[in-house]
Design a protein around this nucleic acid. Structure first.
Lengths: 332, 332
DNA sequence: GCATTGGTTGGGAGCGCTCCCGGCTGGAGT
DNA sequence: ACTCCAGCCGGGAGCGCTCCCAACCAATGC
């Protein structure tokens, strides 16, 4: 019950290994008749290419890597991971979870040294430029998920935050909201500065009275406290735009504890949709980002980069605003 | 800037490739002095073993696989995934997300055919026995995460549900609860039947008046509705034990809509801890399963299985009950 | 009829590693 | 001083594939 190799096929077909290799890889060098015959024999024998042998010979590993840098309590990474992975599809994705940046870089170095992956996807909240710099020094091709764009050699694949911010603020402004605060947290697959800019630009265009951004810590507990402080200040916002679904739930909790009705006194929008948004009451209005598409794009851009093509930054399709029960007209 | 190979090291050290191989793999055949010299040169040259070459030669891929069978709306898989991965550590883990069982089996077959992985971790809610059967037919060594135990050739690694059920029900009984309903959902890395039995046995031992299990659908929306029906029946339960954190949040929502106070009228326990449990109000009492440990155990059991050892079922350390605000004395 | 061309095909050298086999060396035994 | 048995080490085959090179073939152009 040994697995067949191209040598077996060659012997069976009465040709050489080389011919079989060319035939099965669909490249020129064999006649159409021979190719068909070889293909047929390969199918009959149940042949499948040995990825290890191919990798050794071709110098490519045939896999890409993704390291999740996960300080223990950063929330909200997970729901997106599966969407992303679903988008990547059947490409071989080597995954590793590490506690900090050093371990992340060590993982890249190890993968590079052992030739386990051909390239990596850069993910997670707040990937600073130095991470990209170190990565190019290591010599691993990479694609940055969620930006930042404009980095030479490391194409970014991201979701259009400007469009999302425009949609959300436009919707809120139409409901009469004039004071909107953004709660910034550890958003995944999104570049924090890009969101900040998008928010500021959209607010400016709409002429909102207040459009601040409040940063919460990265810990799980920091969210509710920071939000509560925002809500009890003089002239509090009438709407909150939260970077993650978990922060939005925290906003719901904080509002209830401050005696504010949602959406009567306060509207809440999550800048990330998830099953959790549908589950809570009131259900959260949310921006649905095309994460599966993002994953697919990232994989194909990386593939093009590996093939030697000059891959550039690419933006996924426009995110959609899903309105549910957590948003309503501003109290006059 | 070519990467060094053992041939380079051999030339540098004035020995043969074979000696270098033995020296660097710590196996007998070279003297201690030579070994040290070779090791030093390898370090100076920045040598790292090529996993592909090693895989080709050794017949081993050096990676294990995990397929997530994810019908679009099954909730609650994600938070555990990262914990599990963190536990697996630096072992190479090939991950793929597929839409259904057929695709899952196809992925196994492909991995097997291309020799991409040496074995797989079986995960996800409700892995039926036929999945295991098909897997052994494919010929891929596997370890079942969360059970079921007692399957020849496919060792199970699981968390002690019986202990958890005993702890939770003992705690609730001590608070005066006599009617407890378990809300069963798509729990991950847990065998559903094992939980059902554990729950029944523990309830029986404590002599509880009511200890039913109510099954919700696998969809995200089915949870709240089913829970609501449980709460409005005559002689409703005074405590709910929910299989997942998301179901527990759904219980909180349902209780509020039914006008029940938590924990005044109803206690809620989540049979899975997560950051979400800490975030909501009241914070959810929960069973904390040692998932990182589970991941580590699974990886080591699989490694032993691959090494030819006769690996048996193994149970992770006892889960801990974390009490928070969602549980209190039963209303008399 | 002969050299030239373009398309096929066979042969074989790697890719970097593991592991077996046989030759070499040293020290102990007589 | 000679044999003998270890322990070390060099040499090389093999893993399954890719890809280069040379040999071959038929058809064409003169």
């Amino acid at each position: 019950m040994k697995r067949p190799t191209i040598t077996d096929i060659a012997r069976e077909a009465g040709v050489s290994k080389g011919a079989v290799s060319y035939a099965l890889n669909g490249r020129p060098g064999v006649s159409e008749a021979t190719r068909r015959r070889i293909t047929e024999i390969a199918r009959d024998l149940g042949w499948a290419p040995s990825s290890t042998a191919r990798a050794l010979s071709g110098g490519r590993a045939g896999a890409i890597g993704l390291v999740l840098d996960r300080p223990p309590d950063v929330l909200g990474v997970e729901p997106f991971l599966t969407a992303l992975l679903a988008g990547i599809g059947p490409a071989s994705l080597l995954l590793q979870v590490v506690p900090d940046l050093d371990a992340e870089l060590a993982a890249y170095r190890r993968w590079r040294g052992e030739r386990k992956v051909d390239g990596v996807l850069l993910a997670g909240p707040g990937h600073a430029g130095d991470r990209i710099g170190e990565l190019t020094r290591i010599g691993l091709p990479a694609v940055a998920l969620g930006g930042p764009p404009g980095h030479p050699g490391v194409p970014a694949v991201w979701v259009d935050d400007a469009a999302a911010a425009g949609d959300v603020l436009g919707y809120l402004a139409a409901l009469g909201h004039r004071r909107v605060v953004r709660i910034a947290g550890p958003a995944v697959f999104a570049h924090p500065r890009s969101r900040a800019e998008a928010f500021a630009v959209a607010a400016d265009r709409l002429g909102l009275a207040v459009a601040r951004t409040v940063h919460t810590g990265h810990s799980g507990e920091a969210g509710p406290g920071a939000i509560q402080r925002v809500l009890v200040q003089p002239r509090p916002p009438t709407a909150l735009l939260c970077d993650t679904d978990v922060l939005a739930v925290a906003a719901l909790v904080a509002a209830r504890e401050a005696g504010l009705a949602v959406p009567g006194d306060l509207s809440v929008v999550s800048w990330d949709d998830s099953p959790l948004c549908r589950l809570v009451r009131p259900a959260l209005s949310a921006v649905r980002r095309p994460l599966a598409e993002l994953g697919g794009l990232a994989a194909s851009v990386l593939a093009e980069l590996l093939a030697g093509g000059q891959a550039g930054d690419v933006c996924a399709s426009r995110p959609a605003l899903v309105t549910r029960g957590s948003t309503g007209p501003a109290r006059p």
